[in-house]
Design a binder for these strands. Structure first.
Length: 660
DNA sequence: GCAATGAGCGTC
DNA sequence: ACGCTCATTGCT
């Protein structure tokens, strides 16, 4: 006699059928299955709870979606094995959201749930639940008056009306304070708020600002790197309604706040907002979805503006919150550019030994003299070498599909080749200026930073980047050398942006947008009476946008360019990669909507031991209107593959950030 | 011609 | 890691 015999089990008296999502990694099984609830588990088997059950003979994990009276299933149903815990972790809102996100990205709901629901911690779950928080007072939101449409957004939040907006913060803006004011406003109306920022440093700053306005009891910090017990405790606190405000990194987009009133993504251009796990959802997209289904307000914010945010504005979905030009001029430091061609060769006598342009040298010297730190932004290593036009320095593009041209790796010299469609271009002609000459991008800024350090030998040099990131820097003379994203918060007298060439030359569709974003993030830390010097050609759009501090102008241009070239977000694009033969079969099977178009495939990755590059990648694009159909077609093709037990995995990513 | 055994497959 | 189907094997 072993275990429980089926004959001894009786279905529960009411709602005996459980609709269940099982945790199996097979695309064609991404749907609910019906099980019977034994009467012994009638009480425990609540909608949203975690389960163990037998599926195709195997013991697997699952989630109980809902209890229903009868099943459509014709065959014999299994009984649920056991209820792991009656904590209803899969809330109805989360179930609907996970399904929508999976469909949007041609992925599986169970994969989204893995991102959205942290692993269980039994001890934490057994702890007595925290008291529901008192209602905080309305915070002071008068600082939003610097932006013409700011007070209207605050007002909508206070009165529980839905509002969408795209906000560009002024240089020097205390953005954590502003966002905390919005979160506290939502909380004061007894609504939940989820604020998502790129990295842990930002989380810490924003958390502090929120606690200052809403109190410690009403705010939780959700991030993957806080440890499993702490993480699950914080998550449960939110789900149980014991805290209204969530501050976190990308996994917190799914935070199950009750009565959601506000969703915010800060610096939506940062690639940390794209999840690295299947189905690779992007924070901005998930929050748009949540705002749409929950009726909550959404704020897409940053110093710079992405083409995606610009599309939200231009499509009329979100009004913009931007300051008037006068206000921008007042808040902005003096920003000058210095390109290779217009670099002044006259050197300051004190810097003669070093090869630092005198404007940059003077800006640094003046700031240090006033007792302020100076920020020096240098590039990170490891950028993919790409090709640019010799004349106008714009990225070299394929004539056929407008993909980036690169030099194929290999021994013999081969012509520049498109990284997307694989077509070689033997007679390059720049689409922008008509030049026939190409240049390879080189990096030379690190040396400049070193020279700067020698030129100001009496001043301490602090480094921030890689493994050692400084949070803040004191208000005293210092050279702070930082890589993009690792700039310590400080009251800088000057910033020198030395990474222009490395950033602008990347073989990436988002290279210029990304460059401007990083420059603005650094320049925003400089005092309004300070100076910023960027070492890049003044003719480049990104440089002009920085000098004038006009992220909207740049985003408008960027979106127009992408529309013309057929890039996201103007179109919906998917990358599909896998072993060559499997990929070919997948593409063959794919039933694309009318606007569908396949680019490639092209080989990707390094050759293996035997020297063959088996892996290939294709890009598939459709109009935005056909986006859902594209995702559905990709999902259907995946279903076919897993149903046939085809061994080679095909990876599908929708709107991938890196289109190499 | 038919039972006994085993491999493969779907998956409630 | 179950229980079903279907093919193969071996014996009458």
């Amino acid at each position: 006699m072993t275990g429980v015999r089926k004959g001894e089990l009786r279905p529960a008296a009411t709602l005996p059928v459980a609709r269940v999502y099982v945790d199996v990694p097979l695309a064609h099984l991404d749907r609910p299955f019906d099980y019977l609830v034994p009467d012994t588990l009638d009480e425990a088997a609540v909608p949203g709870c975690r389960l163990r059950l037998r599926f195709a003979g195997k013991q697997v994990d699952g989630f109980l979606l809902e209890r229903v009276a009868a099943s459509e299933f014709g065959g014999r149903m299994e009984f649920i094995g056991k209820v792991v815990s009656s904590e209803p972790v899969l809330t109805p809102e989360l179930a609907a959201l996970a399904r929508a996100v999976a469909d949007r990205y041609a992925g599986m709901m169970i994969d989204v749930l893995r991102l959205a629901i942290p692993p269980r911690h039994a001890k934490v779950e057994a702890e007595p639940p925290a008291e529901p928080p008192g209602t905080p007072e309305q915070p002071d939101t008068t600082r939003w008056a610097r932006y013409p449409r700011g007070p209207a957004f605050v007002d909508a939040l206070r009165n529980k009306r839905q509002a969408h907006a795209v906000w560009q913060a002024l240089p020097g803006e205390d953005w954590p304070a502003r966002l905390a004011e919005l979160a506290a406003t939502a909380a004061a109306s007894d609504r939940g708020a989820v604020l998502v920022v790129p990295d842990y440093r930002d989380v810490a700053r924003l958390y502090e600002a929120c606690v200052a306005r809403a109190g410690e009891d009403d705010v939780v910090l959700l991030a993957a790197d806080v440890g499993p017990a702490k993480r699950y405790r914080a998550w449960l606190r939110v789900k149980r309604g014991a805290a209204r405000i969530v501050v976190g990194t990308r996994a917190s987009v799914f935070a199950p706040v009750q009565r959601p009133g506000l969703f915010v993504v800060w610096d939506d251009g940062d690639d940390l907002h794209a999840d690295l796990h299947a189905p690779y959802p992007h924070v901005r997209d998930v929050l748009i979805q949540r705002a749409h289904t929950s009726g909550a307000s959404l704020l897409v914010a940053g110093f710079a503006r992405t083409a995606e945010a610009q599309l939200l504005v231009e499509s009329g979905w979100a009004p913009e919150i931007v300051a008037a030009r006068d206000e921008v001029r007042q808040a902005s430091p003096r920003i000058t550019s210095l390109g290779e061609t217009d670099q002044q060769l006259a050197r300051d006598p004190a810097a003669r030994a070093a090869r630092i342009p005198s404007v940059a040298f003077e800006a640094a010297r003046d700031a240090l003299k006033k007792g302020r730190p100076v920020l020096v932004q240098v590039p990170r290593g490891g950028y993919v070498p790409a090709l640019a036009c010799q004349q106008c320095r714009g990225p070299a593009r394929c004539r056929r599909c407008a993909g980036p041209l690169g030099l194929p790796s290999g021994t013999e010299a081969r012509p520049p080749t498109c990284r997307w469609c694989g077509v070689p271009d033997t007679a390059f002609r720049c689409g922008n200026c008509g030049s026939r000459r190409l240049r390879a991008i080189v990096v030379g800024a690190k040396r400049t930073a070193e020279e700067l350090g020698r030129a100001f030998a009496e001043v301490p040099v602090l480094g921030s980047g890689g493994a050692e990131v400084l949070k803040t820097v004191d208000d005293r003379p210092a050279l702070v050398v930082a890589t993009p994203g690792a700039e310590p918060v400080g009251d800088y007298g000057a910033a020198l942006l030395l990474d222009g060439w490395a950033l602008l030359g990347r073989a990436d569709l988002r290279a210029t947008e990304e460059t401007l974003r990083r420059w603005m993030t650094a320049a925003a830390l400089v005092r309004a009476d300070g100076r910023v010097v960027v070492l890049a050609e003044s003719g480049l759009p990104a440089v002009q946008a920085l000098v004038r501090w006009d992220p909207v102008w740049h985003a408008r241009q960027e979106l127009a360019a992408r529309t013309e070239l057929g890039f996201p977000p103007a179109v919906r694009m998917a990358s599909v990669d896998g072993p060559a033969t499997a990929l070919a079969a997948f593409l063959d099977e794919l039933k694309l909507p009318a606007s569908g178009e396949i680019l490639g495939p092209v080989p990707i990755g390094e050759p293996d031991r035997d020297g063959n590059t088996e892996k290939e990648r294709a890009l598939v694009r459709t109009t935005r209107a056909d986006g859902r159909a594209l995702a559905a077609a990709l999902a259907t093709a995946q279903h076919g593959r897993t149903a046939r037990k085809e061994p080679d995995p095909i990876r599908v990513r929708l709107d991938p950030l890196e289109l190499i």
